[in-house]
Nucleic acid binder design. Structure first.
Lengths: 84, 84
DNA sequence: ACTTTACTTAGACATTTGTCTAATTAACGA
DNA sequence: TCGTTAATTAGACAAATGTCTAAGTAAAGT
């Protein structure tokens, strides 16, 4: 839960998630959209993975990141307790 | 949106929100539950207010904090775009 | 009036965070 | 086998964050 909120607490990481809504993408393809260095994006992807918001598979040279939506259920569950 | 995720990215602040589910409470009453100093809790409450997650009204000596659930709709809306 | 109670503001400080450059690893292509 | 491309790891650094103590403000009690 901590890792989840931590991962979501950054506009770049949220934008990456939104990017991944359109389907899986390689680290490089993701990085192209942002004006940050590759290591920075790599670090963001790492935090997203720690929160289990994305998964990654190595495909040849590339590392393909995929959105994992099941984690959102946890968040929805937490939110739901406030909806009386 | 930034203020919202920022406010949620701390276990103490989330615990305060959960405390407030049981109804409004004064800053002091909230602070009693935690082993942090009053200024620290006051600061957390400030961040929650900045995110509009709580409102505060002064009642005599006391400052009563109330959960504002309407903000969760914004979060639910953001989440919803991922639920294909 | 003075003291106490409730809370916030101000300022300090260690830790965490987001970013960078440089170096490293791994796969591909000629 | 060598150079290129894709990505991560390592290390540095400024900025943001969470905590504290001390000081300030304001309402209530006596």
């Amino acid at each position: 839960m901590n890792a989840l909120f931590k991962a979501l607490n950054d506009p770049t990481r949220r934008a990456i998630l939104e990017r991944l809504r359109n389907g899986p993408a390689s680290a490089g393809a993701i990085a192209e959209q942002f004006h940050f260095s590759a290591p920075t994006i790599s670090h963001h992807l790492d935090l997203l993975r720690q929160a289990d918001l994305v998964t990654s598979q190595k495909q040849g040279q590339f590392v393909v990141y995929t959105l994992n939506m099941t984690v959102f259920d946890e968040l929805l569950g937490w939110l739901y307790q406030f909806k009386s």
